[in-house]
Amino acid sequence: MRAFRVAYDGRPFHGFQRQPDVPTVESALFDALRKLDVLDHEADKPAGYAAAGRTDAGVSAVAQTVAFDCPGWLSPRAFSSQLPADVRVWASADVPCQFHATYDCESRAYEYHLYAPGADLERARAAIAALQGTHDFANLTAASFDDTVRTLETANVEQDDAFLVFSLRANGFLWELVRRIGSLVRAVATGAAPPEKVSRVLEPEPLPGHEGVPPAPPEGLVLVDAAYPGVEFVPDERAVETVREVFGEKETTATTAARAARSVGERVR
């Protein structure tokens, strides 16, 4: 069995998990494997297949991880040869036959870039420090879970111009948890909510609708790590170069589009 690290731009996709009639990252992976004759055209998915986790529509990844039974020649470069440019496989590791990419993942880490002009960094740091550790995060997810207690092993925030940049690692994440944490911390950091809002959110009583914390936009969220103790991923150097080339071009295109949008906004009187 082999595990692969997958990087992707989540914006063109309706999330990671395969869905009928809409493009997803997982569908792109399976289509590539069929083109390579690794996956039989009649098969639902590769033998032993599992992924580190799901990402929502618009969410990107550096180290999404998938693992399955495959021939020895399937390298990251070969895998990427049949993938759209938005999805790149860049590293791999041979793993035991009982390896499960979901259940064997010890922790996951996300980075979130959130536009927050006027945010006070010290207020943001105090808010996120209060969220670190083990808490019941029921008020920071829209999904229904039997157990909403999670442990944020690390929770940091830095400022980069008009953006707050969050780094979060946990033993598991609830749906929209990172995006709602970002929204909560931004509200406190900009003065839209008092610092006491953080402790109120962590209380077991549900927040009334008007006090709820909405999720911030998905486009700034990136899955940056899925940790597997004892598994050593070997980068494919050419595949890594391709990732840098593809995403460098994407950055240039996005920067150019942003400048054009600013020009339009400034010139309309």
Rank of each mutant, 00 (worst) to 15 (best):
V59D: 07
S167T: 14
T102I: 00
R169S: 13
A57H: 03
D225L: 12
G48E: 02
A155G: 09
A127G: 07
V231D: 05
Q159H: 07
G48I: 02
V149N: 07
D147A: 07
A216F: 01
R262A: 15
L33R: 04
F173R: 06
R150Q: 02
P71H: 05
A129T: 14
A189K: 04
Y110P: 04
V268I: 15
P23S: 08
A258W: 01
R34N: 01
K197S: 11
Q19R: 12
A119L: 06
R5T: 00
F99W: 03
H14V: 08
R88I: 13
N171T: 14
R123G: 01
L184C: 09
G58Y: 02
A85F: 03
P84W: 04
G230W: 03
H113G: 04
A119D: 01
D44L: 14
T134F: 00
S81N: 09
F233H: 03
K45W: 00
Q19G: 08
A216S: 14
F145W: 13
A193I: 02
V87N: 02
F99Q: 05
K250L: 14
Y228V: 09
S167N: 06
E237K: 15
F247W: 13
L207M: 10
P46R: 06
D69Q: 15
E245F: 06
A109C: 08
A138F: 00
M1Y: 04
L29P: 01
P23H: 08
D94P: 01
L121I: 15
D147H: 12
S199G: 03
E211K: 15
A127W: 02
V165K: 11
A187T: 03
V243T: 12
S75C: 08
R54C: 08
I128V: 15
A7C: 12
F137M: 03
T134E: 13
H14F: 12
N139H: 05
H113A: 13
A138I: 00
D21T: 14
G230E: 01
I181K: 06
V213K: 05
D40V: 05
D56Q: 12
G133L: 07
P46C: 09
D146F: 11
A124S: 09
D31T: 15
P23K: 06
R5K: 13
R123E: 00
S75P: 01
P76H: 03
T255D: 05
V201A: 08
K35I: 02
A119Y: 02
P215G: 07
V87S: 02
D9Q: 06
F233T: 07
A257Y: 00
G212R: 15
D37E: 14
F68D: 03
P23V: 09
F145C: 13
K45Y: 02
P76K: 12
A51V: 11
R200Y: 00
A130C: 12
L221R: 13
A130L: 13
E249S: 08
G10A: 12
A78E: 06
H41Q: 05
A227D: 10
